[in-house]
Design a binder for these strands. Structure first.
Lengths: 178, 178
DNA sequence: CTAATTTATTTTAGGCCTAAAATAATTTTC
DNA sequence: GAAAATTATTTTAGGCCTAAAATAAATTAG
């Protein structure tokens, strides 16, 4: 980070490794990542609304169903999208009303609801997905291929770090409860 | 990206630069970034709720006000947080009710509402901000200092790319309207 | 000076989202 | 095999968020 490039430091004592209580760099990193995500998400929401009269949650849900030929349960979708079950129920209600999704209880376990795209849903999704891929490419056009690769790799490490930290805290809480 | 490391390619013809219509790498990059942001955001929301009985939008709004000694207008806050004016109005209503924020019309321009943290608000924010910084550090603990710097730099380029692409499209739409 | 326009904020209508409680079906345990 | 526990989903209550319309104050044009 710019403030910790050794050659530019006014005082070597302020290096991060020598400031155990300081985590400003991580905070700045998070705020910048959040800015990027928000910019992309807002832009994609706007374009989906203007060009297809739909919303991002609907698009995301259809994207999950499109990847599965045999259909997915409410629980599977909610896990993949990292949203609550109740939210999937509600978004699906809209898609059902528009005839884009089909929902039926599984024959062997009637608690489970299996969701699939209808033919109309698959067609609508295909058109949107093609445009969507182009929009994302436009948005990242300022990065060359090696930069995209490097960013992808660093975010992979970030993901690993996040899962570890989140699991560690959940473990602690579970022990605390016991 | 792993699928385009030259040495591992099964067929050199599938390199990105030779597949003009393909933008799968950008799409994967975006999905991974979204996953990271969502994981962090959800975890911070949970911790704010459990430890401080508050929400992320309230914390974010207080963070903006804390940075300004003279107060900020509704419009300034909404721009900084990248949310609508109406949303700021609503979140501020809650903070006003809890005595954490003060709102008063500017004396010279009575359209403008100036928001400031109350003494109680400043104190509450200080306690939360300290914990928050620690949480973020925990979440990024799997990255070393050079990696954090590199990720920060690449996200800076991403931000520039996004602003350019979004502005370009807004320009196009404005010309189309004229 | 007054009407039209612009600017800042609030209100409205509606969708997204969550946590927690409720419901319904299945599996486990005795 | 019936009661208890578990699992999958839906419902409920409430906050966040937006776009668009409404309100209110200031500025500009004539």
């Amino acid at each position: 980070m710019e403030t910790t490039v050794p050659g530019l430091l006014l005082d070597r004592e302020t290096k991060a490794s020598e400031r155990p209580g300081d985590h400003k760099d991580e905070l700045r990193l998070w705020l910048r990542m959040l800015t990027c995500s928000t910019l992309i998400e807002t832009e994609i929401r706007n374009r989906l609304r203007e060009e297809f009269r739909t919303t991002l949650p609907r698009f995301d849900l259809m994207a999950q169903l499109d990847k599965s030929s045999t259909g997915m349960t409410v629980g599977e979708v909610s896990q993949r999208l990292m949203v609550s079950n109740g939210n999937v129920t509600a978004v699906v209600a809209g898609l059902l009303a528009d005839g884009l999704v089909d929902k039926r209880a599984a024959t062997q376990d009637r608690r489970v609801q299996v969701l699939t795209l209808t033919a109309q849903g698959r067609k609508a999704f295909k058109a949107m997905a093609e445009r969507h891929e182009g929009w994302i490419a436009e948005l990242f056009a300022g990065l060359d291929q090696p930069e995209i690769g490097q960013l992808f790799r660093l975010l992979g490490q970030t993901k690993t770090s996040l899962h570890r930290a989140i699991a560690a805290r959940a473990d602690g809480a579970a022990k605390g409860d016991a």
